[in-house]
Amino acid sequence: MAFKRKETVIEATDLATITAEEAEKRIIAGVRKYATQEANWSRADANTPFLGHIIGMGIESSNLADITMSIERQFLTRRTRRVPVSPDGSEVRLDEGELGKLRILDGQDALAATPGLAVKMLMDLGHMAPDPAYLGKVVSFAYISVIGEGWKLNEALRKAMGRLEKLSGPEREEALANLRALTAQAKSYEALIADAAALAGQRRKSYEEEKAAHEALESELSMATAKLAGAAGGNDSARIASLRSEEAEIRTRLKMSAAKLRVSAEIASQAGNRSAAEAAKVAEIRGLLQETVRLAESC
């Protein structure tokens, strides 16, 4: 007997017949049961992260796949025809075909951290028509991370201040040293996010790290290929079979590494192009950090 999902039956909607705002609302409603931070969920908008408790909906990592599957369950699309793109057919692309169930392929949801980014993903993959007006208000993945980090830092600073009030003597001195360090971290973070170019430079560094790892893997592949070329001249069929499987394994790893690299590349490029919506979010978190830093410095 096939496993029967214990969930409410939802009538799926053709993505071509609804607006981006409607899709966003449905996505938010679909993840309600996984949201442990009810207050944030109830006022969620396009830019509310699914994960995290301070500004996010509080969805746990064990329900991450459920977010994507909830989106798949609610919508229909015409991009249903599977077209193989790799010689062994393991990789496919979805082309126009009959109206059917939405399928989000492996890795396609890597940046869908908010309802707005999930809608953007559907547009990018051709399941919905692009809506520039809607996309204009969606904060990119890069800035969702930046803003999330800012909130966490602000929270850490507030907690350190709260603890300080109850202490005296050497304990207070130590706690004060921690507060000073946190203040310095908050100030440098605030300065970093104020400058889009500096932020992009920092994200670019992470991308370069990923790229170096990817290149290392490419050299591993070329070594395996060279070994295979050398072995092809001999008659050791077991050795050739083992090298072929080694080569196939490296190709799989390379594919995964490329997926990782795409995420880093996207983040690096998004960090440098700050939209009005992102600028407003950055201004909000900067204001908050400045205020908390001011209070911390007066301790």
Binding site: S145, E149, K152, L153, A156, K159, A160, R163, K166, L167, P170, E171, E174, A175, A177, N178, L179, R180, A181, L182, Q185
Partner: peptide, 23 residues
Amino acid sequence: PSPAVLALTEVDGIPRVLRGGRV
């Protein structure tokens, strides 16, 4: 002596503990 002399922060999204102002 007590947890009060410690603080938690995040560096590049990774939790870190501070003591005496040092990560």
